[in-house]
Simulated scan of single mutants.
Amino acid sequence: MNVSRCLRFVLYLALIPAAAMAQDRRPSHCIAIADAGGFIHKAAFADPLDAYSVRLNYVDHAMFLIETAGGLRVATDYTGFLGSVPPPDAVTMNRAHISHWTPTPDPEIPHVLPGWSERVGEPADHNLDLGEMLIRSVSTDIRSAAGAGREENGNSIFVFEVAGLCIGHLGHLHHEPTDEQYAALGRLDVVMAPVDGGLTVDLPTMVRTLQRLRSSVVIPMHWFGPYSLDRFVAGMEAEFDVDRRAESFLEVSLNTLPSRPTIVVLQPAYLAEAR
Results as ranks from 00 to 15, higher is better:
residue 53 S to V: 10
residue 98 I to F: 10
residue 120 V to M: 09
residue 42 K to T: 15
residue 45 F to C: 12
residue 162 V to H: 04
residue 273 E to P: 10
residue 93 M to F: 04
residue 115 G to N: 05
residue 36 A to Y: 07
residue 68 T to E: 06
residue 57 N to L: 05
residue 118 E to R: 07
residue 262 T to C: 15
residue 137 S to Q: 12
residue 72 L to M: 14
residue 92 T to N: 03
residue 193 A to L: 01
residue 38 G to S: 14
residue 46 A to D: 14
residue 8 R to I: 14
residue 128 L to P: 04
residue 34 A to G: 08
residue 168 G to W: 02
residue 248 S to Q: 13
residue 87 P to S: 10
residue 6 C to W: 15
residue 246 A to R: 08
residue 208 R to V: 02
residue 241 D to K: 13
residue 268 P to V: 12
residue 229 L to F: 02
residue 91 V to T: 12
residue 238 A to N: 11
residue 151 E to W: 07
residue 106 D to F: 05
residue 79 T to M: 12
residue 167 I to K: 00
residue 138 V to T: 14
residue 76 T to H: 03
residue 148 A to K: 07
residue 167 I to M: 06
residue 38 G to M: 15
residue 67 E to V: 07
residue 68 T to M: 12
residue 204 P to F: 04
residue 26 R to Q: 15
residue 264 V to L: 15
residue 230 D to S: 00
residue 127 N to V: 09
residue 124 A to T: 03
residue 144 S to M: 08
residue 207 V to M: 00
residue 217 V to E: 07
residue 196 D to G: 02
residue 213 L to V: 05
residue 241 D to V: 11
residue 76 T to L: 07
residue 156 S to C: 14
residue 233 V to Y: 02
residue 207 V to I: 15
residue 264 V to F: 04
residue 217 V to R: 03
residue 157 I to T: 02
residue 211 Q to R: 14
residue 124 A to E: 01
residue 262 T to G: 11
residue 40 I to R: 06
residue 103 P to S: 06
residue 271 L to Q: 02
residue 46 A to C: 11
residue 91 V to K: 02
residue 234 A to M: 13
residue 268 P to F: 03
residue 111 H to I: 07
residue 137 S to F: 07
residue 48 P to W: 09
residue 202 D to V: 00
residue 212 R to I: 04
residue 176 E to V: 08
residue 221 M to G: 06
residue 12 Y to W: 14
residue 18 A to F: 13
residue 155 N to T: 14
residue 246 A to Q: 15
residue 252 V to T: 07
residue 200 T to D: 01
residue 3 V to Q: 15
residue 178 T to R: 13
residue 54 V to I: 14
residue 122 E to P: 04
residue 112 V to I: 11
residue 235 G to I: 02
residue 74 V to K: 01
residue 48 P to A: 09
residue 51 A to P: 07
residue 126 H to C: 08
residue 60 D to Q: 04
residue 64 F to L: 13
residue 186 G to L: 04
residue 136 R to Y: 15
residue 199 L to W: 02
residue 159 V to L: 10
residue 97 H to P: 03
residue 90 A to P: 08
residue 153 N to G: 10
residue 244 R to P: 10
residue 5 R to Q: 15
residue 21 M to P: 08
residue 240 F to K: 02
residue 186 G to F: 10
residue 20 A to K: 08
residue 65 L to G: 01
residue 229 L to E: 01
residue 222 H to V: 00
